[in-house]
């Protein structure tokens, strides 16, 4: 230990060593906007889970007499829709399908897109060219058009809508994954790992994934709102969820005829979509800056 005594680094009080995620959480906690957005999302998820307990009425029970009641009617706190179903209950139950349609395609696309992008980015060369040019073909279509075209081709329905949304997001996530991986691959620590004789798979597992999944995750989070809006759009066009299922996009569609009669009522599902997508976007922004170590 003679060397230690000689070279020991003299220093003031050492800051306590903290883990990466502890640091991310500490920085995120200081961001009131991100925290608020997170709480909104949490509330929405709880609402979806406990919908049967929260909803005051059966969301499927129609009433030909009490149609299109305005917001604040006795027995109908948020009014009733064109078939006389309780709006509040439908909005609460709608969170289930809407969140599911928002999150599931993104989760699936995150897995597939990351795998494709990291492979292309790490291997490079002609593999990269082949993969990325194929991806570009899909990317060249506007998302809405692609989703509608795929759904139309596969046929209307819930499962097909999920598949087509996933296909829409895979190229987008793969492109981000490829860009981040290419960047990380050129870092000296990857060079150092290669110089130590490590194989490609080990390097990807230890040195690449940990550094690329974070940014890809953040980007994917911001896609959840897009996915919700696209899913709503598919339902609106009759390609996604089918009546009488409560789903915000579908509700927006069926209520559109009521917009001159009860404009506030017709806007309610839109408001829910808006709040949810804003919340996911703000949380993604907060995560992005919280994951920046240098702050």
């Amino acid at each position: 230990m003679a060397v230690l005594a000689q070279h020991s680094v003299v220093e003031g009080p050492a800051p306590k060593a903290t883990g990466y995620w502890t640091g991310v959480w500490r920085r995120l906690r200081r961001d009131p906007v991100a925290i608020a957005a997170g709480l909104v999302i949490l509330a929405l998820i709880l609402m979806a889970i406990f919908a049967p307990y929260l909803a005051p009425a059966d969301p499927y029970r129609t009433s030909t007499l009490r149609r299109l009641r305005p917001v604040g009617t006795a027995g109908y706190p948020l009014g009733s829709d064109e078939l006389g179903r309780d709006m509040l209950s439908r909005l609460i139950f709608g969170a289930r399908l809407s969140l599911f349609m928002g999150i599931t395609p993104v989760v699936l696309a995150f897995g597939i897109g990351s795998a494709i992008g990291v492979l292309a980015g790490y291997v490079g060369g002609w593999v990269n060219t082949a993969i990325m040019r194929t991806i570009d073909v899909f990317y060249a279509f506007p998302s809405v058009l692609l989703a509608v075209a795929l759904s139309g081709a596969l046929g209307a329905g819930f499962g097909n809508a999920l598949v087509s949304l996933t296909v829409v997001f895979v190229p987008q996530i793969a492109r981000v994954a490829e860009a981040v991986t290419t960047q990380v691959r050129s870092r000296d620590y990857v060079e150092a790992a290669r110089a130590s004789g490590a194989g490609g798979f080990t390097i990807v597992r230890v040195h690449v994934l940990g550094n690329v999944l974070g940014p890809i995750f953040v980007y994917s989070t911001s896609l959840i709102s897009v996915s919700m809006i696209l899913a709503s759009g598919l339902s609106f066009l009759g390609l996604g969820t089918r009546p009488p299922e409560p789903e915000w996009g579908l509700m927006l569609n069926t209520l559109r005829t009521a917009i001159y009669v009860q404009p506030w009522l017709a806007a309610l599902p839109g408001v829910m979509i808006f709040i949810t997508s804003i919340a996911f976007n703000l949380l993604a922004d907060g995560l992005r800056s919280a994951m920046d170590v240098k702050q």
């Binding site: 870092r187 000296d188 620590y189 790992a193 110089a195 130590s196 490590a198 194989g199 230890v206 550094n211």
Partner: peptide, 30 residues
């Protein structure tokens, strides 16, 4: 194994997501 390198940029040559102990222990494990 017999020839190693130290790079100029001390930050870029360490994986930001690994503790320094894990970074040093990586190569022997390989």
């Amino acid at each position: 194994r017999q020839c190693q390198m130290v790079f100029q940029d001390s930050y870029s040559s360490l994986n930001p997501r690994l503790t320094i102990e894990a970074s040093v222990a990586f190569a022997p494990q390989v």
